[in-house]
Nucleic acid binder design. Structure first.
Lengths: 204, 204
DNA sequence: ACGCAAAAGTTAGTTTGACTAACATGGGAA
DNA sequence: TTCCCATGTTAGTCAAACTAACTTTTGCGT
């Protein structure tokens, strides 16, 4: 008994967000039309404005969910390899880059140029949670291995590096100069190097 | 004798590109209106279409020029510190991040989500030139210091790292978790670590 | 010089998609 | 039951990229 031709949708807000998430993942936020989401949900193009301020508010919610997805994947990867291990840290980085590679369109939106998105309370919260995870677990690794150096500084280095990989990978900038690059190998090789203590230039 | 009210502009194409470059640098590509550039150049909104396929073609030219600007700054920084030196390599990285920080809007456009831009012949050419510089000079450093390891792999690591810094910096993602971060110090500290030879996980 | 084709402008549209106004429906609490 | 108001609808506005059709220069070949 599908509740077909009901005047009221039931949960249009959720339906629109899900449609937007899928459409953006498929075709990018820049090609996302509110009207497409409306068609998927089976409502008119004016209906969303009963639930959202504007188009950007839907994007905000999509981005917050995408951050949550990264957090989940990172934690799962870490748990699989064991917390406080080098392999666990590497697995977190791989999960980050894998998400970016698989969900290029979403990743671009998350770290894209729309400044309004970054001011959203929910986006800020989920984003912070995502990065706090990394910092926390790198700190745990540093402690259990009695490494010197500021865990926070090391975590930021690692995050910076995998974020650089993710960005260049999905924008196909590597393809221009290094088409055969194995980014996962690069993560595995470079992560140990970055765990060295931060300090005034230790040349050689 | 300013050639004021001439029917023909003289060099409208160049004038529009310059106006676009300035406007985008100031307010971002997403807020760039062709009509604003037209007003600055003193022509009607239909005039650009005598010189450009569409709005994107102007963006392509702007991006190519911005890549050229980065190349120039990198080379200047390198020359100032001396080619084949560690300081020179660090200076290139600093120049990259400095450009991103000073010209956030342009940098976002250059590495943004518009896939058409990346297919432009001139953009590809200038982009490739920009990264080839880095690779070439890292290779020179590796040779003159008799470092083991693939210079290309090392250069890609370095570029990835500074690109990660630039991205997170201008999107204000550092501000969320590490507001007091000194990115230039991070470059100086981390670059030497990344010059180690690439190889199967050298843990500790 | 001159004539005229084509380059480079113009004005006046069309189109598209986000957003709004005003109206319609129906679900649920008093 | 009643009726309020959340949630839909239709019809229309607005902005900005782009197009069509016309006009004004420019400059080249004779």
């Amino acid at each position: 008994m599908k509740p077909k031709a009901r005047y009221h949708h039931g949960d249009l807000k959720e339906a629109l967000v899900r449609a937007a998430y899928v459409l953006i993942a498929e075709d990018g936020a820049e090609n996302f039309l509110l009207s497409d989401a409306c068609r998927l949900a089976g409502v008119s193009t004016a209906a969303p404005y009963k639930h959202f301020r504007d188009r950007d508010e839907i994007l905000e919610i999509v981005v917050a969910r995408a951050f949550d997805e990264i957090s989940g994947r990172s934690m799962a990867a870490l748990a699989a390899k064991g917390e406080g291990t080098l392999e666990g840290i590497i697995a977190m980085g791989e999960a980050y880059v894998t998400f970016a590679a698989q969900e290029q369109r979403l990743f671009r939106l998350m770290f894209g140029q729309n400044p309004k998105l970054k001011q959203s309370e929910s986006v800020l919260r989920e984003g912070r949670r995502c990065f706090t995870n990394v910092i926390e677990h790198v700190a745990r690794y540093c402690e259990s291995n009695r490494l010197p150096g500021d865990p926070r500084a090391i975590a930021i280095r690692l995050w910076t590096f995998v974020h650089g990989i993710a960005s260049l990978l999905i924008d196909e900038d590597y393809a221009v100069v290094a088409p055969d690059l194995d980014v996962m190998a690069m993560i595995r090789e470079t992560t140990p190097l970055m765990l060295a203590p931060a300090g005034p230039a230790t040349s050689r």
